[in-house]
Simulated assay, not measured.
Amino acid sequence: MSLRARDIMTTDVKTVRPDEDVSDVLTRLARASFNGFPVVDDENHVVGIVTQGDLVDLFQPSDRTLWIPIGFPPFISSIDYAVDISWNDLDVGIDLAKHAGKPIRSVMTADVVTVIPDDDLDRVLELLADENRDINRLPVIEGERLVGIIAREDLLRTLRDERELAS
């Protein structure tokens, strides 16, 4: 009997709603042991996914990188160091104020890759190992409703356990 998505998924899925405030979701994510949430509507249908990367992009724009030449005058053999100054308290406070009230739907990824409970381990592996998509978690849906989630760690643990059983 081969393993299916239902055998490795986590059923206690932490989610957010599309209208939740960006700063509230960022706070929840900072306290979580994972790096993203499925975004679900009132009927528990997956309408998007939001990750740390989506939120960090709001608070760490590339135009805040400061280049400092290091060395002695006339700086003939200077080294450039990129010093990111965006995460000091003032900047984060300004960014939080600027993005306060913005709904999570404005930053989420709407095109979510999902699996169904009967998908086999090979399908899950194919999606989580896809180098073009860089997916870390797969929502598991049944009849459009979210019933679980599979993180890369879940898949790796399962593969390890299966290997140990085979030896």
Score class of each variant (00 low, 15 high):
Pro18Gln: 02
Pro18Ser: 03
Asp130Arg: 00
Met9Cys: 12
Arg28Ser: 14
Phe72Lys: 04
Ala129Asn: 08
Glu20Ile: 02
Leu155His: 12
Arg163Thr: 15
Ile68Ser: 02
Ile79Val: 04
Val46Asn: 03
Asp122Cys: 00
His45Trp: 02
Leu127Thr: 06
Phe72Thr: 03
Val115Met: 00
Leu156Trp: 04
Leu26Phe: 12
Gly71Tyr: 09
Asn88His: 14
Val40Asn: 06
Gly48Thr: 03
Pro38His: 09
Gly36Glu: 04
Val40Ser: 04
Ser86Lys: 00
Ser106Val: 02
Leu26Ile: 11
Leu55Thr: 09
Thr158Ser: 10
Asp120Met: 05
Leu146Gln: 08
Asp24Tyr: 05
Arg160Thr: 14
Asn35Ala: 10
Val40Thr: 06
Gln52Val: 13
Ser23Val: 15
Asp134Leu: 11
Asp89Ile: 12
Asn35Val: 06
Ile104Gln: 07
Leu155Ile: 11
Ala5Arg: 09
Ile68Pro: 05
Arg64Trp: 11
Leu66Pro: 00
Leu156Gln: 14
Ala129Lys: 05
Gln52Thr: 14
Val147Asp: 14
Ile116Val: 07
Leu138Val: 02
Glu153Cys: 11
Arg157Cys: 05
Tyr81Cys: 15
Gly93Gln: 02
Ser2Thr: 06
Asp42Thr: 05
Met9Tyr: 09
Asp118Gln: 01
Ile85Cys: 02
Ala100Glu: 03
Leu121Tyr: 09
Gly148Ile: 12
Leu138Pro: 02
Asp7Glu: 13
Asn44Leu: 10
Phe34Met: 10
Val50Cys: 09
Glu142Trp: 12
Glu164Ser: 03
Leu58Gln: 14
Asp84Met: 09
Leu3Pro: 04
Pro69Cys: 08
Ala100Asn: 02
Arg152Asn: 14
Leu125Thr: 15
Phe59Met: 11
Ser78Glu: 12
Asp154Arg: 07
Leu55Phe: 12
Asn132Val: 06
Gly143Ser: 07
Thr109Trp: 02
Glu142Tyr: 13
Gly93Ala: 07
Val147His: 12
Asn136Phe: 08
Pro74Ile: 10
Asn136Ile: 05
Leu159Ile: 10
Asp41Phe: 00
Ile8Lys: 05
Leu96His: 01
Val56Cys: 01
His99Trp: 13
Arg64Ser: 06
Leu58Ser: 13
Gly53Ile: 09
Glu43Gly: 05
Phe37His: 08
Arg17Gln: 10
Pro69Lys: 01
Val140Phe: 08
Thr51Asn: 08
Asp19Ala: 06
Thr15Arg: 06
Ser86Gly: 04
Thr27Gly: 12
Pro38Asp: 08
Val124Phe: 03
Gly36Trp: 01
Leu165Pro: 13
Leu66Thr: 01
Trp67Arg: 07
Leu96Lys: 02
Ala151Asn: 06
Ser33Asp: 15
Arg145Met: 13
Asp42Gln: 08
His99Ala: 06
Leu66Val: 05
Val22Asn: 13
Asp120Leu: 07
Ser86Asn: 01
Thr10Gly: 08
Leu125Tyr: 11
Asn132Asp: 10
Glu153Ile: 13
Arg31Gln: 04
Leu121Cys: 07
Thr158Lys: 08
Arg163Phe: 13
Trp87Asn: 02
Phe34Thr: 06
Asp118Trp: 01
Leu146Val: 05
His99Arg: 08
Pro18Ala: 03
Glu131Ala: 11
Leu138Cys: 01
Glu142Gly: 15
Lys102Ala: 11
Val147Glu: 14
Gly48Trp: 03
Arg105Cys: 02
